[in-house]
């Protein structure tokens, strides 16, 4: 099942062709290398677009979001089972 985290995290990302690509994130003192981006989608929070990345890191599944207006990343949820 998923566990909602919703914590701001530091993310190392590259920007390719106007798109953010997360490469690693730091959460609770640990570094997670993004092994694969499984799915990307976009949602809106009011007029601001939010970019979501469902990724595999350290053998588990995580969902990161990037708020391009405020330039912040969040760890939205993790798969716990």
């Amino acid at each position: 099942m998923y566990e909602e985290i919703k914590e701001f995290v530091e993310v190392a990302a590259v920007f390719v062709g106007g798109k953010a690509v997360p490469k690693a994130f730091f959460w609770r003192g640990r570094k997670y290398i993004v092994e694969k981006i499984n799915l990307e989608h976009q949602e809106r929070q009011g007029s601001d677009p939010l970019f979501y990345f469902s990724v595999t890191a350290a053998g588990n599944s995580y969902e990161l979001s990037f708020d391009s207006h405020n330039l912040v990343w969040k760890l939205e949820r993790i798969w716990t089972k």
Partner: peptide
């Protein structure tokens, strides 16, 4: 399928 794509588990 979308959820399976998002999460390989």
């Amino acid at each position: 399928s979308v959820e399976q794509q998002a999460n390989p588990h």
